[in-house]
């Protein structure tokens, strides 16, 4: 169900790792339902940390976070039932085949065996993995692995999908396929939070972008707004100016 309430909402998100400074130093985010929201920033800015906290994989030190109307700290089960996560590194079983991976995770998403088989078949088809379906994932190319990872995160048609650098290491054709899949999802009502190193990707896909640097939000707006805010023509310039050593 789509409401006006943000699908992702955080305030003052803070987290530090022992022995290091703050990884997140007060992140505020508001992502409208059914949109693709970009999280941009240089290496070490805190993108993965933010995604992990929102996906209930890491704890926050302070601040508040809601995902799909559920509190990330107090209702982790509620959040987990409504999200999909495709991490920066494909988290699939290397020994099993693509089909076995999908069926196993579908079962763990509480689908019945028959439903799990059917859904796996659909996703294999959709992500062009039918031919490789019964081979061990170890023998997959990087792009096939990422597509499988994405397929796993979509098993239960999540309300909110976290994509941490979903196209890193993909060839242009695979990248476009992932983009199409992401757009299609957003059109069907899924909210997507996407981190990326590719500014072109953010420019093409995202309706809004949050730029982070050193655990802080440095800018927020539509791609066009960010470009004009620095008087530049493209997002690369905005990125460099906004996150430059400041």
């Amino acid at each position: 169900m789509i409401t006006d309430e943000p699908a992702i909402w955080t305030q003052g998100l803070r987290k530090s790792y022992p022995g290091r400074g703050a990884a997140l130093d007060g992140i505020d985010l508001a992502v409208a339902p059914g949109t693709i929201h970009g999280l941009l920033g240089p290496n070490g800015a805190g993108k993965t940390t933010t995604v992990r906290i929102l996906a209930t994989l890491a704890r926050l030190d302070s601040g508040q976070a809601w995902v799909a109307g559920r509190n990330v700290v107090h209702d982790r089960a509620g959040v987990r039932a409504r999200i999909g996560v495709a991490g920066q590194y494909a988290a699939v079983d290397e020994v099993l085949s693509g089909r076995q991976n999908l069926e196993m995770f579908a079962r763990l998403y509480r689908m019945r065996a028959k439903q799990a088989r059917q859904r796996s078949g659909e996703l294999l088809e959709r992500f062009g993995l039918v031919e490789a379906a019964d081979r061990a994932v170890r023998g997959y190319s990087g792009g096939m692995r990422r597509r499988l990872d994405l397929a796993v995160s979509l098993i239960r048609s999540p309300r909110v999908l976290f994509l941490d650098e979903p196209t890193t290491g993909l060839d242009p054709r695979s990248r476009i396929e992932v983009w199409d899949a992401v757009r299609e999802l957003a059109d069907s009502g899924t909210t997507v939070l996407l981190t990326t190193q590719y500014l072109e990707e953010a420019d093409r896909l995202c309706s809004r972008i949050t730029m982070v640097d050193r655990g802080r939000v440095v800018a927020e707006g539509s791609p066009a707004e960010l470009k004009s805010s620095v008087g530049g023509r493209d997002l690369d310039e905005a990125f460099l100016l906004l996150t430059e050593g400041a």
Binding site: A55, T56, L57, R80, A81, A91, V92, D93, Y109
Partner: peptide
């Protein structure tokens, strides 16, 4: 290491 445990932790299992 491989992240499979992380994935499982993000599931409603």
């Amino acid at each position: 290491r491989g992240g499979v445990l992380d994935r499982m932790r993000s599931l409603p299992m």
